[in-house]
């Protein structure tokens, strides 16, 4: 099995497996974030559960971080190997004649998403780790303020138009990445279903609606606070 994941086919299977995990995570992340628009109290409750549940914090969170890091590192490794496979570039290459822009530029949309994740970690993840694991405060509250802190922290971040702009741009790149990545992951797993109309349409809907939903959440909080 170790030999399998060292092969070119095995590496793309590994990329697809991490992609499926990340796409599932994205869906779950969106389902929680949209609560901040629909029901702030419920958003606080769910955020506190996610932020303090030992199974999520100590089992799923490390798996998620591994999934993200693995997907990026393997993406870069494959890109370097692929560049080496064509040591002399064409003088004239008409890529648009036979493939989509998204499929040819996954590395660039991926790098844009990586830059966003760095910003996102600085905004939310590092402060959470600091509060819980360094200061040891697992209460989910701020002294002197009633209720949980999560909704307030979220809306506070979306005051800055520059940050909102960066988020919107990142989600456009995420949509572009998913428009190829969703069906590509199925193909890599050996499923021809990814080439059938039904799954292609589900892929398009997922790739456009989820990023659009995240954009809506960012804009909603920006204009309502």
């Amino acid at each position: 099995m170790g030999g399998f994941f060292k092969s070119s086919v095995g590496r793309k299977v590994a990329m697809a497996l991490s992609a499926f995990f990340l796409m599932f995570f994205l869906l779950q992340h969106f389902a929680i974030n949209i609560l901040s628009v629909l029901n702030p109290d419920l958003f606080n409750e769910v955020s506190h559960f996610m932020g303090t549940n030992p199974l999520i914090q100590f089992a799923l969170q490390p798996v998620l971080i591994f999934g993200v890091v693995f997907h990026f590192i393997m993406g870069f490794v494959l890109e370097i190997k692929n560049k080496k496979a064509r040591n002399v570039a064409y003088v004239k290459n008409n890529g648009a004649a036979n493939s989509t822009w998204m499929s040819r530029n996954m590395i660039y949309s991926g790098v844009a998403i990586l830059a966003f994740i760095v910003l996102h970690f600085i905004d939310f993840w590092f402060p959470e780790i600091n509060t819980k694991f360094i200061k040891g405060d697992w209460s989910g509250t701020i002294e002197g303020v009633e209720g949980f802190r999560y909704y307030e922290e979220l809306t506070h971040k979306f005051v800055s138009p520059i940050r909102v702009g960066a988020y919107v741009l990142a989600f456009v790149f995420l949509a572009l990445h998913l428009l190829h990545g969703f069906t590509s992951a199925f193909q890599s797993m050996g499923a021809t279903a990814g080439r059938k109309k039904t799954l292609q349409n589900i892929g398009k809907a997922y790739s456009i609606l989820i990023p659009l939903g995240f954009i809506f959440i960012a804009l909603y909080h920006h204009f309502n606070h």
Binding site: S7, S8, V9, R11, K12, L78, K81, N82, K84, A85, R86, G95, N98, S99, T100, S103, R104, M106, H180, T183, S184, Q187, S188
Partner: peptide, 18 residues
């Protein structure tokens, strides 16, 4: 066949469909 393909220095498929 996959091992030989990798040994020859061909790149990795990214499903562009080209």
């Amino acid at each position: 066949m996959v091992a030989q393909m990798d040994l020859e220095g061909f790149g990795n498929c990214t499903n562009t469909g080209a």
